[in-house]
Every structure is written in structure tokens, then in C-alpha cells.
Amino acid sequence: MSEVLLEARGLHTYYGASHILRGIDFTVRGGETIGLMGRNGMGKTTLIRSLLRLVPSRHGELHVRGRAMTDAPPHAVARRGIAYVPEGRGIFPNLSVRENLVMAARPSVDGKRHWTLERILATFPRLAERLHHGGAQLSGGEQQMLTIGRALMTNPDLLILDEATEGLAPLIAVEIWRIIRQIRESGIATVIVDKNHSAVTAITDRNVILVKGSIVFEGPSTELRSRSDILHKHLGV
């Protein structure tokens, strides 16, 4: 088995008085592709934000590449090789496309630059055409490509994608899925949250279903696809 990139044990996260995550164990190994599923409000985004230390967890432990990061600031987690494509994209509208890409560029944890500006622009030709446009002038699909490209420029070992195809035209969504497959094949581990469950299970090795802040299912895509009871009960499929 490859190296454990990220390991959370017994995470409990609250928003004010609301108990959102109720003891989550979550592990990602190098090169793995994981689908994170569950209906709206079940804690998917909160789990991601807890893993990235963007929200504090009240209990539990977080290790990134073997280092304890339970109380680490978000930038330190990111610098251990984790990149994030957030829901709603989060591009910097006051920076140009090029600036969005290069602002946080850095080599991977083991010092390699697999993803350079040239490679990103070859992967996303539409960004190359708009290199000097402001981030705010892009279409939704272009913004999403920019967010993914920006994340890759940090040369991560793990890429977390939260609703990367949400609100995109079907053809653009197909393009984004193609890129996600390409990223996966390049050896980067991915955690994918997406409403299109069949698209997710088509490329994931393992799937995790959250219900009310707890994990109710964890298993390979083949197993999940055969369990219509689980799909129906927890995902409404």
C-alpha cells in the first residue's frame, strides 16, 4: 500500500451549537480516488473544511503525511501537499488569469514541479486564450478550469474537489470530468464531491457516504453500485 497522505481520527466539528461532524475517521492514501457522498447538509463540505483546517474541530486528530496537524493553520496543511477546489470556485476576481495561476505556484513536497504554467495552459487551452483577462471576466466553466489549474500549480499529492461540475453546462461538465480523470491518472490522489453519483463511482476506488455527520457506508465502487438499497436510502438514487 502506498503512503498515507491524510488521516483523520474521530473528528467532531461544530458550527456554534450545531454538532455537524460526529466522529469521522477518514484516510487518504497516495494515488487513491475517493468519492465523498451524501445529501445536502450531511456534512461533506464541513468534513473537507475540517481536513483543511479551515474550521476548527473540537475533538479528534489530523495527520498529514505522518505529521500531527490537529492544530495547524490552513496554509501549513496546504503546504504538506493538499490542494482544494472549493464549492463556488473561489477565484480571485481582482487578479488576472495568469496571476491566479502563478500566485501560489510551488514545487511538490518532494521538490518536483510536475505542473508548470506551460503544462496547465496546454491542459486548459481556454485559459491560455484569456491569460491577461481579469478572473471576474471568465465564464463559469473557465473559472472552474482556473480553480483546478491554480490548485495543480501547487503540485499537490492530494486534490480535493468540492462540487467541481455544479452549475456548469453539460458539455463543460464532461470536459471537467475528462480533466479530473487526467489528474487521477497522473498519480495525484483525489477526493471528489459531486451530485453526479454515476460519474463519481465510474472513476473512484473507494466511496464514503455521510449521513448527519457520520459515515454510514465505506467501500469500493463495485460494491456501492450493487447496493441499490444504500443508493436509494442515503443518496435518493
Partner: peptide, 25 residues
Amino acid sequence: TRLGMMIRAGNTNREMAQSLGVNIN
């Protein structure tokens, strides 16, 4: 400069800048 870009980025979306590995503090 890249530092200037980080400052401008952090100005509009501090959290996003942090999760890209920028030590905004």
C-alpha cells in the same frame, strides 16, 4: 511581484489564499 499578488488575493478571499498555502498572517 508574487507577494503583491498574494496580498491582493488575500484581500478578496483570505480563506482561499490560505488553502493555497499562503501564510496570510
